[in-house]
Amino acid sequence: MKTKYDPTDWITHITRIREDKDQAAFAELFQYFAPRVKAFLMRSGADATLAEECTQEVMATLWQKAHLFDASRASVATWVFTIARNRKIDALRKQRRPEPEDLDWGPEDEPDQEDILSLQQESEQLGRAIAALPEKQRELIEKAYFGDLSHSEIAEQTGLPLGTIKSRIRLALDRLRHAMK
């Protein structure tokens, strides 16, 4: 079941968690994202028990790191995705994930409101563009991100020849790019 929501509203939730340790805000965020994080982890190969355990760790990390969220750099969904992905590499693949050096973001403490707004708008646009992709193209992009599958493994699962998969993913990304213009 998908619930429509306003993505800028999640930013308010994070602010409430960061500034007031607001459990009600966290509960709403949890209700929306925890089942999605669990689905992501299970599609990546975790069994239900491990996925549930990791989901709790991912959501607890959100609470603890609320002060590090920067709405001018990522949407809340993207931030949740990166935390869940890192947990996946750590817990499922037992590997370290080297991260790039942090950038110097200059002296200003508060991110610019216009930057926040345009980033959130672009994120919504991207979401709509992905939702509008033909089913088969969307499935393949989802597999590349969630399934932890190489393209040859995708070919085994879907029975499609490799060339077809590559061109479908390319087509999907081309469409996304055009939708973002």
């Binding site: 089942p35 992905i130 992009i141």
Partner: peptide, 14 residues
């Protein structure tokens, strides 16, 4: 990363 976020947002939930 934003594509990942959008996919997570649109995924079926468990």
């Amino acid at each position: 990363d934003s594509v990942g976020g959008a996919l997570l947002d649109g995924t079926d939930s468990e």
